[in-house]
């Protein structure tokens, strides 16, 4: 069941669609007692339990070095857990990656190929998956429009601002319709204004097309602003310290940042984070 409402945002003065899932859909990511020990002997994660439901936006916050990024790489099927059981869409992550295009990944840097135009960068994953070039062009046009970069289709990454490059990176991750979007501190290197704009853009995209997100950040306010749930991890080896259900619904805009409820959620997360930091 999907309830669709229309509302006007102050930020963009445009009508956007907001979807809220009413039913209780299945888990996309299920982590039971997951841990990983690196060949160097470091135990990066240990006994980590976490579930991410379809359509949910979950943020991971925690002290630096707690293994947040490692967990994303486990979900992406880039690393194999040495303890516990991890599934993505009911399969082992590596199997999921190889059989279905399970993940879109957004790194802290936009990781665009400087020798490719914006459009060519955007469809790189589809090209690797073997999509024909005509079909790629259609997808590229759709996504360029969605992130407002149509006129930059033929531009080179070096000609874009940092925020624009990050929009290309997000569009690239979403264009292959992944089961889950993984974001590893994507806005950490950007200035405050750009970061705020991109946070709202991400919420708008989510409202428009609906996707599941696991978002790593060390910015508590960013986590609360974006997420349905904020999960706080302990220092190494990383486990779950606790979580805060945010519950502001699918439609948020800049006004929320001044809200008292917003501030109280931030305090809750900050309190957990304080307990998690040795």
């Amino acid at each position: 069941m999907e309830r669709v409402t229309r509302r006007k945002t102050n930020a963009t003065h445009s009508h956007i669609l907001c979807r809220v899932n009413d039913d209780n859909p299945g888990l996309i990511v299920e982590s039971r007692q997951v841990g990983i020990r690196f060949p160097s002997g470091t135990l990066a994660l240990h006994g980590l339990d976490l579930g991410v439901r379809e359509g949910e936006f979950v943020s991971l916050v925690g002290p630096s070095g707690c293994g947040k990024s490692t967990f994303l790489r486990l979900v992406a099927g880039l690393l194999d857990p040495t303890e516990g059981q991890l599934t993505v869409g009911g399969m082992g992550p590596i199997h999921a990656r190889k059989t279905s295009h399970s993940c879109g990944f957004v790194f802290q840097s936009p990781t665009l190929l400087p020798w490719r135009t914006v459009q060519e960068n955007l469809v790189l994953p589809l090209e690797l998956e073997g999509m024909a070039s005509a079909a790629r062009r259609v997808v590229a046009e759709e996504w360029l429009e969605r992130v407002g970069l149509t006129e930059f289709a033929k531009a080179w990454p070096a000609q874009l601002s940092g925020g624009m490059r990050m929009r290309v990176s997000i569009a690239r991750a979403l264009a292959s319709r992944p089961r889950i979007l993984l974001m590893d501190e994507p806005f950490a290197a950007l200035d405050d204004i750009t970061r705020g704009g991109l946070q709202e853009e991400l919420l708008r995209l989510r409202a428009e097309i609906g996707f599941t997100t696991l978002f790593v950040t060390h910015n508590v306010s960013e986590a609360v602003f974006l997420s349905d749930r904020v999960v706080v991890m302990t220092g190494r080896p990383g486990r779950i310290q606790g979580e805060v259900a945010v519950g502001f619904g699918g439609c948020r805009d800049d006004d929320l940042r001044g809200d008292a409820a917003f501030a109280s959620k931030i305090r809750e997360v900050a309190h957990l984070l304080k307990m998690a930091t040795p």
Binding site: T111, P125, S176
Partner: peptide, 10 residues
């Protein structure tokens, strides 16, 4: 990270 990106997309 670019290598990881290529790996993620098989």
């Amino acid at each position: 990270e670019l290598l990881e990106l290529f790996q993620i997309h098989n």
